[in-house]
């Protein structure tokens, strides 16, 4: 089964460039503004959209993304509304891949089978679930693959060669390499170390490898993108959004543009990179 993710990476390969993957939190700072933001992302140069599913206890996220999730929850966001958001986006855009990223509990409570059906029909292409390692594949990964959704696994600096095959076994769409040991938005990713790690993963898989955690600037993004099939930026975009809010944390007339402008400048960084040799 070919998803929008597979199609997008095949196109990019033909164009000889890496993907720019953007992360924003669904419903941050409110559902209506959030829809405007994700509509603006592809126009500003995003190739793939990762949409965070808000959760009260995001154990792998730094303060910026924690706060974004809490803003969204405060604005009434739920998993059901996240799916509605994607439906709204799909009215105008049927090609940009959308990957939901977050934690398992809200999906488990929604009901795995019902969620997979609703997600697929809403136009979602893949899932990244931080707290579902290969050891728990029965929970969601295998049912998701069956439902025609990509299950995108995180590989990390602690995933050694012995473990990599298990991590890659049921991965599809792309592999997300976490450039640092740590939480989102913490340290800066080191391009040299990333280059070695991506090469190591590519010895085990033909899937595209995107790199995230610790990429903040266009220069950063360019350096990382030249060693990988994609660069993911999340915290920097979430920070730009936050800085545009008023004192009560509400959207202002600047909010959508603040995210769009940073997306455009990061996209230029990624597009300036030489595509990594296959």
């Amino acid at each position: 089964m070919t998803t929008r993710i597979d199609t997008r990476f095949a196109e990019l390969k033909k164009q000889g460039r890496s993907a720019f993957v953007t992360f924003v939190m669904a419903g941050d700072p409110d559902p209506a503004t959030s829809l405007e933001i994700i509509k603006a992302l592809p126009k500003s140069g995003a190739d793939v959209i990762e949409l965070g599913m808000p959760f009260t206890d995001p154990m792998a996220d730094g303060p910026s993304i924690q706060a974004a999730g809490l803003r969204a929850l405060k604005a009434g966001m739920t998993l059901k509304k996240t799916l509605d958001l994607v439906r709204g986006f799909r009215k105008d855009d049927d090609t940009t891949p959308i990957v939901l990223m977050g934690y398992y509990n809200p999906i488990y409570i929604y009901g795995v089978d019902k969620f997979l059906g609703d997600a697929k029909s809403a136009g979602i292409d893949g899932l990244i679930i931080v707290d579902l390692p290969p050891e728990e594949d029965d929970e969601l990964c295998l049912p998701a693959m069956k439902a025609g959704l990509n299950f995108i696994r995180l590989a990390t600096p602690t995933t050694d060669d012995k473990r990599l095959p298990a991590v890659l076994a049921n991965t599809s769409g792309f592999v997300y390499y976490v450039a640092i040991t740590g939480i989102t938005g913490a340290a800066a990713a080191d391009a040299t170390a990333v280059s070695g790690a991506v090469a190591r993963i590519k010895r085990h898989t033909k899937l595209p490898v995107c790199v995230g955690f610790g990429i903040r600037t266009p220069e950063n993004a360019r350096a990382i993108a030249s060693h990988a099939n994609g660069a993911v930026v999340g915290t920097a975009l979430v920070d730009a959004l936050k800085n545009s809010l008023d004192a009560e944390g509400r959207a202002t007339s600047k909010t959508v543009n603040a995210v769009a402008e940073l997306t455009a400048s990061l996209a230029q960084g990624v597009r300036g990179a030489q595509q990594a040799a296959e």
């Binding site: 707290d131 995180l154 976490v178």
Partner: peptide, 20 residues
């Protein structure tokens, strides 16, 4: 062996922690 007591328990952690 997978840490389950009936349906409870398990290993729901980020990949970074799994090898640990």
């Amino acid at each position: 062996e997978r840490g389950h007591f009936g349906i409870f328990g398990g290993r729901f952690v980020a990949e970074t922690l799994m090898p640990l």
